[in-house]
Design a protein around this nucleic acid. Sequence first.
DNA 1: TGCTTATTAGAACATTATTCTAGTATTTAT
DNA 2: ATAAATACTAGAATAATGTTCTAATAAGCA
Lengths: 197, 197
Amino acid sequence: MSRKNQTSELKSRVMEVALGHFSEVGIERTNVSNILNDSGCSVGSLYHHFGNKEGIAEALFIDGVNQFNSRLLEALLPRRTASNGIKAIVTFCCEWVTDQPELAGFLLSREVTLSDNAKLELRKMDREFGQSIYDWFVPHVRSGALLELPTSMYVPLICGSTLEYSRLWISGRNNRSPGAVASILAEAAWQSVKSSP
Amino acid sequence: MSRKNQTSELKSRVMEVALGHFSEVGIERTNVSNILNDSGCSVGSLYHHFGNKEGIAEALFIDGVNQFNSRLLEALLPRRTASNGIKAIVTFCCEWVTDQPELAGFLLSREVTLSDNAKLELRKMDREFGQSIYDWFVPHVRSGALLELPTSMYVPLICGSTLEYSRLWISGRNNRSPGAVASILAEAAWQSVKSSP
DNA sequence: TGCTTATTAGAACATTATTCTAGTATTTAT
DNA sequence: ATAAATACTAGAATAATGTTCTAATAAGCA
């Protein structure tokens, strides 16, 4: 196997192992030595590739956001009506969280403290993503199907309930998965942003 | 001053100082030595009173939840209609977060890992609080004013948007405070749980 | 007044993340 | 094909920092 492949496999293995520990006991309480043992990586390699423990968390975070963003766009952009679009967003979130609760829990936990570099990269990703989302929304606000609100309120109104429910489910405090109650959450989100008749 | 007062004042000072650091850089990244310097507490006293760093966070957390719960009940229980009650909950949350962003940010961050003891105490508090809330809700669900939903969904549906918006505001990503957009959040929450005509 | 107990103090300790130096393999250039 | 440069691996040594421990102090109480 080529050096490149070997290396990227080692990095993936470290990230996979780290995610398991992070989502179980949090970043602070997972020991670097456990990650090293479970992944078969050496101290030197780990610090060479990731800089420090937070660096692993950062890599996981950026990967996760990337994956989430691109799949969400796939789910949203084909929708032609406001109602279908809003419900598609919520339903997608529910399924995504239900499918990968470890990664979702990690992203939702907000325990990652990003380096300046990571912040920049994330901001760049966010701008592109935000633009696509914005372009989908504008016509529906113009047409009067959606309420006209301060821009920063759409995400909380549409996704807030779902994210809060997901946090509770991930931490084991309710039985039904987000996927199982997606239709309720989707309808509620739609009711809260549709413009009243 | 009596020993008792001196001690409780020291504890408050430590907690106040710790909250400042915690809300600024998180629990992990605040150094015990900084808390010691800024509060004038000694290593021995700190560990005598709080057990460890997490113990300070735990005390802050329990205090915060207690304060939040009792004030929320004061705001909710006098309301006679479903619509007024739901809006009172959301409005109260918005004002509470806006009034004490440090404490709110700390509670919302979920970085505290509770000891078994603290978990028990919190569960007890939660049961009492939950019961009062439940008693207020039941008649409005019976009367058909509110949707009948799985119990675990009311909190996310009513507070999810507000909490998500609050997190964003606290982390500096939008200008208007929750207090300033409370009416929008309250109306949205009401739309999402009122039973459709 | 003397005894008990809660509290204070900070030096010593233990844990754990990170650095550093040296060595090895792989690619790239000549 | 060989040499030079680079990327990577290794783990012992180090540094940072949370926590324990022993002794001293002072408040409350009989």
